[in-house]
């Protein structure tokens, strides 16, 4: 177990009810929080003068099929002023695959959340325009889910017959 960084300690003391667990490895800090507290924690991290995480680097997700909770939404944030980096993980149940949108905090979250929705089917509540961003509208399902059939395709036009064996 690595030594807890000052940043993790600070957040833990501020939100004892929301922090589920933390992880730290070579200055690479991770905090797992409950999704109920996501917006509150993120707003705090962005505005508090000790953290000032003013840049949202990326949002992505992991599908841990077979374990509970199934999904994890992951936020990478960066403080340009204080030169801090932090990873926030939010566990999401399969039956209730919804998290609050953080577009009101970082507007750049808009397309990231659309990508996570497109690939994993996780709904972002109060997102201004939650629709597919990479796949086309005729596509059914969410291709990065582990239970999506490996070679399932949805052609948009009639495909020609081709000889596959010679």
């Amino acid at each position: 177990m690595a030594v807890e960084s000052a940043l993790i300690k600070f957040v833990k003391e501020k939100f004892p009810n929301f922090v589920i667990s933390t992880h730290s490895f070579r200055n690479d800090d991770t905090i797992v929080i409950r999704k109920e507290g996501l917006k509150q924690v993120m707003t705090f991290l962005k505005t508090d003068k000790n953290t000032l995480f003013n840049m949202l680097v990326d949002i992505t997700a992991v599908d841990n099929l077979g374990s509970e909770p199934r999904f994890e939404v992951i936020y990478h944030i960066l403080s340009l002023t204080l030169k801090l980096r932090l990873r926030i993980k939010v566990p999401v149940e399969e039956m209730e695959a919804e998290v609050d949108s953080i577009t009101s905090i970082w507007p750049g979250a808009n397309w990231f959340e659309r990508e996570v929705f497109d690939m994993f089917g996780i709904i972002f509540k109060n997102h201004p325009d939650l629709k597919r961003i990479l796949m086309y509208d005729e596509f059914e399902g969410h291709p990065l889910r582990k239970d999506f059939p490996l070679k399932k395709q949805f052609p948009r036009i009639q495909m020609r017959e081709v000889k596959t064996k010679y």
Binding site: M135, P143, F148, L150, K151, K152, Q153, P155, M159, V162
Partner: peptide, 8 residues
């Protein structure tokens, strides 16, 4: 050989 690409 995946969900997105036309196989030829």
């Amino acid at each position: 050989d995946n969900y997105a690409t036309v196989q030829g």
